[in-house]
Amino acid sequence: MKIAAVSACTIGIAHTYLAQQKLEDAAKATGDSIKVETQGTIGIENVLSEKDIEEASIILLAVDIKIANESRFAGKKVVKVSTDTAIKSPRKLLAKLHEIANE
């Protein structure tokens, strides 16, 4: 499954990048493809392209704050969780994304 994701925390440092790493590791373990855009203190990195969004089966927002350009996900299945959820239970989260994507 292809997943497009955004991670962003309130301070924009630790949790933003921890969530990215945990999600990427979990996706690798489950055989999923994921691209995680980070919106942290140094700005937006690894920006999701229109193609990334279009090809994604589901959009994951692991965020604790309002993110930039959320409207670009209109018409897609979007799941929003806290960065804490992505960090503590990334495999359970990906399993849930599979369920939702197949609904």
Rank of each mutant, 00 (worst) to 15 (best):
C9N: 03
I65D: 01
D32T: 00
I44R: 12
G12L: 10
F73M: 05
T30I: 07
E37Y: 05
V81S: 02
E37S: 06
E45M: 13
I42V: 15
G31Q: 06
I3T: 06
K80T: 11
D25A: 07
Q21G: 09
K80W: 12
E37D: 13
I13C: 05
S71E: 15
D32F: 09
K51E: 14
T30P: 02
L60G: 10
L60T: 07
S33N: 13
D84M: 10
D52S: 04
L23N: 06
S71H: 11
K51C: 12
T38S: 08
E55S: 08
V78R: 03
S7L: 08
K66C: 15
A74I: 14
A62S: 00
I87L: 12
Q21P: 13
L61G: 02
T16M: 06
S57L: 13
V47T: 12
K51V: 13
L60R: 02
K66T: 15
Q20M: 15
K28D: 14
V6C: 01
A86Y: 04
L61R: 05
I87T: 11
E55D: 15
E24L: 00
P90N: 03
Q21R: 14
Q20R: 15
D64A: 08
K80A: 04
I11L: 15
R91K: 13
C9M: 08
K77N: 02
V79M: 01
F73G: 01
A86C: 01
S89A: 11
K77M: 02
K66D: 15
K22Y: 09
K76G: 05
G43V: 08
E70K: 11
V81I: 04
L61D: 00
K80P: 01
E24H: 02
T83P: 07
I87R: 07
K51W: 07
I65S: 05
K76V: 05
T85S: 00
